[in-house]
């Protein structure tokens, strides 16, 4: 049976800097099939975040192809890529990307506003997501007043707002206490199982890696 790939990296090389380039990856070939749950493990600075950013199209590789859902995104025009990214990926970066001035519900609503989803549908989806993360009564709380862990939960919840087929999560449980970690892991797992999403997650957390199908060890390159 033919395997459908969600993401395929073909001979990808990436380095930073021009004068004395720091090589992060050289000719990397990795593929993630539809519905796969993959964990990226490796020391700090090994390139896990770079890899996620290349997959999301935030960073361009120096060489190689990044094929997402059958489309090479490396040469895709920026405007087109932004739309493709919003519809294809739910992204939780390492640095939280929430609007602190807005409420929890408004933050979850943001990606839907940008995709012109009607207001009634947005309100319905926000309620569903809040129910799933167990905070339906906190909808109006302003994000700037939440703890770092609570914000992380909101960022993860928001990444599913457009029901994207692929989730890219960068150390999502790093700032969480054990109870919150269990809740987040259960949320990600249910999204993965029920909706057959592909999950690619950079993590050191054993509770996350033990539910992954694949663990990819990212090694730090020696200079």
């Amino acid at each position: 049976m033919a395997v459908n790939y969600a993401v395929k990296l073909e001979s990808v090389s990436k380095s930073y800097g021009d004068a004395s380039p720091q090589r992060i990856f050289e000719s990397v070939n990795i593929s993630f099939h539809d519905g796969e749950f993959a964990a990226l493990k490796g020391p700090i600075g090994s390139g896990k975040t770079t890899l996620l950013n290349i997959i999301a199209g935030f960073l361009k590789p120096n060489f190689g192809r990044v094929v997402v859902k059958g489309i090479d995104i490396v040469r895709m025009p920026e405007k087109e890529l932004a739309v493709f990214r919003a519809k294809t990926f739910g992204i939780v970066p390492q640095t939280q990307n929430l609007v602190l001035e807005l409420s929890i519900a408004q933050n979850i609503e943001l990606p839907m506003i940008f995709q012109n989803i009607p207001k009634v549908e947005r309100a319905k989806r926000v309620q569903e997501i809040l129910q799933r993360v167990g905070i339906p009564k906190m909808a109006d709380r302003i994000v700037g007043t939440l703890s770092v862990g609570e914000r992380e939960v909101i960022a993860i919840a928001r990444s599913t707002a457009l029901d994207p087929p692929i989730l890219l999560l960068d150390e999502p449980t790093e700032a969480l206490d054990p109870a919150m970690t269990d809740m987040v892991v259960a949320f990600i797992k249910s999204d993965h199982v029920l909706k057959k999403k592909t999950v690619i997650i950079a993590t050191h957390d054993e509770r996350v890696t033990k539910i992954a199908h694949t663990i990819i060890q990212v090694k730090k390159r020696m200079p």
Binding site: A82, A86, K87, N97, V99, E101, L110, P111, F114, Q115
Partner: peptide
């Protein structure tokens, strides 16, 4: 603060 919010908007696919 505005720059930070604009960056978030961009990442979430807001139109120009």
């Amino acid at each position: 603060r505005s720059d930070r919010n604009i960056r978030v908007f961009k990442e979430l696919g807001a139109s120009h």
